[in-house]
């Protein structure tokens, strides 16, 4: 149970980072932290204590196995979040070229 709670704290740290930080690089780090927290949570839902890998073999009886599906799904999620991260970081670099700052409060040409 405590491990889920820690996972929740990680999620909150990321959310705080996105909502409160003014530097866009820190916002991106917050996004990454949230993604890690959710991936970790997804893995944990499939985890069994002292479970083994679900590989079928002859003369073996599998009593307690880890659910492999969340792991496969999280792998997909990691790839997706990597792509998002690449896009967001490259946007941040271009923004720095145009505005000369990473401060989100100074990047405000769009209004209304």
């Amino acid at each position: 149970m405590s491990v889920y709670f820690l996972c929740f704290i990680l999620f909150c740290v990321g959310l705080y980072c996105i909502l409160r930080k003014r530097n866009i690089i820190k916002i991106i780090i917050g996004l990454a932290i949230i993604e890690y927290a959710v991936s970790l949570f997804f893995i944990l839902t499939g985890y069994r204590l002292h479970g083994r890998a679900p590989i079928f073999a002859r003369d073996q009886e599998i009593l307690n196995m880890v659910d492999p599906l969340p792991q496969a799904l999280v792998l997909t999620t990691i790839v997706i979040s990597l792509v998002v991260m690449v896009i967001v970081v490259s946007l941040a670099l271009r923004i720095y070229e145009k505005y000369g700052t990473f401060d989100i409060t100074k990047i405000r040409r769009l209004k209304g």
């Binding site: 996105i18 993604e35 969340p70 998002v84 946007l91 405000r108």
Partner: peptide, 28 residues
């Protein structure tokens, strides 16, 4: 890739990714 386009896209990317994360958490 004008300054306004980048700014809009950055906002959209952060908000959109956050939305996707909420959806993923729901799915989990």
């Amino acid at each position: 890739v004008e300054a306004e386009d980048l700014e809009a896209s950055f906002k959209y990317a952060i908000m959109g990714s956050l939305a996707s994360i909420f959806i993923l958490l729901g799915i989990a």
